[in-house]
């Protein structure tokens, strides 16, 4: 509780700094591109179209009863947020060493601002997702009001992992390479492009240890099947995300004073 309160007070005090860091990221990202912020919408839409064509036509993946494109996009939208945000958060502390070395800034600010920045991008990618939901005739149902819950869970989980990764990366730069490998393993270990029922029961058990699977299937239950997620789904999502978030804060907080020696 104490650390959460502290994080809150840091957030209110350095609110403007976080805003500035996010706007900087946006400005730098889209500088000198003709379409600018429009890429936030176009890029995921096009990437997902490519994947959808490859997997449904070449590999002939399909999901009985529901639209494959929507199935794929729901998974990818959530997964891409996690993968991009953790990657940026991991390098955020190391990238800002010149600042940390000169001015006192609470170091939480860097991973947090990256996760928020990608979070705003994530909200943009919801636009193509909803376009696909409407055009494929999947339609919107009442339970969509519950989706923000899983988004918040995903955010908390991501920032928890981001805190841990950024800490490790400070002490051990190998982490950038290791994580690149880990994330591509995770891409295939998360049922994004395929249905979890396609694989053997024992292996399913392993995949279900991955919290991301639960967030994605929570969203799919609502979007594809139009049902309210079960109580156990709620509990798993909320528990894993809060737990990861707290562990992340503890790891980061315990180590942040040592960061400066590893520049």
């Amino acid at each position: 509780m104490k650390t959460i309160n502290e994080l809150k007070s840091i957030y209110t005090k350095y609110n403007f700094l976080i805003q500035q860091l996010i706007t900087r990221d946006f400005k730098v990202k889209y500088k000198r591109s003709f379409l600018g912020v429009l890429w936030s919408l176009l890029y995921p839409l096009m990437m997902m179209t490519v994947l959808a064509i490859v997997f449904s036509n070449v590999f002939r993946f399909s999901t009985p009863g529901v639209n494959y494109l929507v199935y794929l996009m729901t998974g990818l939208t959530l997964y891409n947020y996690f993968s991009e945000a953790t990657n940026l958060a991991m390098s955020s502390v190391v990238a800002n060493f010149s600042l940390i070395n000169k001015v006192y800034i609470p170091k939480y600010v860097f991973p947090l601002s990256k996760c928020l920045f990608v979070g705003i991008n994530f909200l943009f990618t919801l636009v193509p997702l909803y376009l696909v939901i409407l055009f494929t005739g999947t339609g919107i149902n009442f339970w969509h009001v519950l989706l923000p819950i899983v988004f918040i869970c995903l955010f908390l989980f991501t920032i928890g992992i981001g805190f841990i990764l950024s800490t490790i990366a400070v002490f051990m730069r190998d982490m950038f390479y290791i994580y690149g490998i880990l994330i591509s393993i995770l891409t295939y270990m998360t049922p994004i492009m395929y249905d979890i029922n396609m694989i053997s029961k024992e292996f399913q058990m392993i995949l279900k240890l991955n919290p991301l699977y639960h967030y994605i299937s929570f969203a799919r239950t609502i979007i594809l099947y139009g049902e309210c997620p079960s109580i156990s789904q709620f509990l798993i999502c909320i528990a894993t995300s809060i737990l990861t978030f707290i562990i992340g804060i503890i790891v980061f907080k315990k180590n942040q004073d040592k960061f400066i020696y590893y520049i």
Partner: peptide, 8 residues
Amino acid sequence: YLNGAVMG
């Protein structure tokens, strides 16, 4: 603005 924010 960015630098001002850095200074708090």
